[in-house]
């Protein structure tokens, strides 16, 4: 669906994108992940035809974004980073205006606008002025605007930035729903976001792609074995020696001790699940097992690892 090959972008002397290539299949939800200034917005602006590339090739649905910009633009719904909206229009007026610019015929427009507004949950406030809406609803109007006219590809630049936790969850669910029918590319620098919504992650740092994979694969590829955090009532050093003696366990690190309660982080050997052995070992020795939690390797660590490796090489 989206085919990016050897994409480079230079702003006078600054190289924002250095030879980026990736593919997105139809129906995928792809997370574009990277720190601020990594080149996410630049990539999206090139995909949407707002900026031209310095070199390379981008095709969307078989059409070159530079040569056939107008045709490509009509296949894309785009929400820029800051959610720019016309504050003095009502929700309905604004979405209809964008629908008109997308050349949706007058007969279809009413229906399409209504559908986009309802899908994004702003149907009930359609006659309110945009400037009076909360940030979360403004974001929804922005997505409704991108969605109207049923484009095949949705490109959303930092769709959850600046929202409160409830709104973030709502927008993520909305994106997940949309991803069932459409190809979605979203950018973010929040790592939970991609694991929550995407089935493919592209990690980008300083204009280069450092990893492309599914969130699960990335986690297992880079995390090594399973990690378990336990809290046990008992003598800390004895517990450690005991656990280190177990077969499935590679390493035990002390995480803290307070009033006879020890907190330990246990690293298992690759492919092993040490939880049952730990539990029975603790019980056998008569210590009190207060808590045991499997600690997932989060994308933050993966991200830091990837970008650090990249800098070394």
């Amino acid at each position: 669906m989206i085919h990016v090959k050897n994409l480079c972008k230079k702003y006078s002397s600054f190289e924002a994108l250095k030879d980026i290539s990736f593919d997105v299949e139809k129906g995928e939800v792809v997370g574009f992940l990277g720190p601020n200034g990594a080149g996410k917005t630049t990539t999206m602006r090139i995909l949407t035809g707002y900026l031209p590339m310095t070199s390379g090739k981008v095709e969307i649905d078989g059409l070159d974004v530079y040569e056939e910009s107008l045709k490509v633009r009509s296949k894309i719904g785009y929400l820029p980073e800051t959610t720019p909206l016309y504050m003095d229009m009502t929700v309905k007026e604004y979405v209809s205006y964008i629908a008109e610019l997308k050349k949706i015929s007058k007969e279809e427009r009413k229906e399409q606008v209504k559908k986009a507004m309802n899908d994004c949950g702003v149907g009930h406030i359609k006659d309110k002025l945009i400037k009076t809406l909360s940030k979360g609803f403004k974001q929804r109007v922005g997505i409704a605007q991108a969605l109207v006219g049923n484009p095949e590809v949705l490109i959303l630049d930092e769709p959850t930035i600046g929202l409160d936790p409830n709104q973030i969850v709502e927008i993520r669910n909305l994106i997940k729903d949309l991803g069932k029918e459409k190809t979605v590319i979203l950018s973010t620098h929040i790592l939970q976001e991609v694991s929550a919504t995407c089935n493919k992650v592209i990690i980008i740092s300083e204009g280069k792609i450092v990893a492309i994979d599914s969130p699960e694969n990335l986690t297992s590829r880079l995390s090594g074995g399973m990690r378990v955090d336990i809290t046990v009532k008992g003598p800390e050093s004895e517990i450690r020696t005991c656990l280190e003696g177990l077969d499935a366990i590679k390493e035990v690190k002390e995480a803290g001790q307070e009033g006879g309660i020890a907190t330990l982080r246990v690293f298992a050997k690759e492919g092993q699940d040490p939880r049952e052995v730990i539990a029975s070992a603790v019980v056998r020795n008569g210590w009190g097992l207060k808590e045991m939690r499997r600690e997932a390797v989060n994308l933050e660590e993966i991200f830091m690892k990837l970008t650090k490796d990249d800098k070394k090489s």
Partner: peptide
């Protein structure tokens, strides 16, 4: 306000 970017990325 950035709305120009929305406008210029429409067909």
């Amino acid at each position: 306000t950035g709305t120009l970017e929305v406008l210029m990325t429409r067909p």
